[in-house]
């Protein structure tokens, strides 16, 4: 498929956190490593919904602790 999930997610995280895309590693944790606070987590969720056209139920948000979590979650949602 045409969408590079990983690149799109790194770009979204960059928009929300202000970090350069080159500085964002897959294993980074949103809160501990990227300094996200609760509203920024919600903002990343909103970005993922927007970019990938999916709806992320509130119950799934706690599973998104790292950039890699987001990538695998979105891949799973798009693939399923």
């Amino acid at each position: 498929m045409g969408v590079d999930v990983e690149r799109e997610i790194v770009a979204a995280v960059s928009r929300v956190t202000g970090y350069e895309t080159g500085d964002i590693q897959l294993d980074m944790l949103f809160i501990e490593d990227l300094g996200c606070q609760s509203l920024q987590i919600m903002e990343i969720v909103l970005e993922l919904q927007s970019v990938f056209g999916i709806e992320i139920p509130d119950g799934d948000i706690d599973r998104l602790r790292s950039v890699a979590d987001a990538v695998s979650y979105v891949k799973g949602r798009l693939g399923g």
Partner: peptide, 10 residues
Amino acid sequence: PRFVTPWLIP
């Protein structure tokens, strides 16, 4: 509504 930014109120 699910596209409204969580930063709206702040």
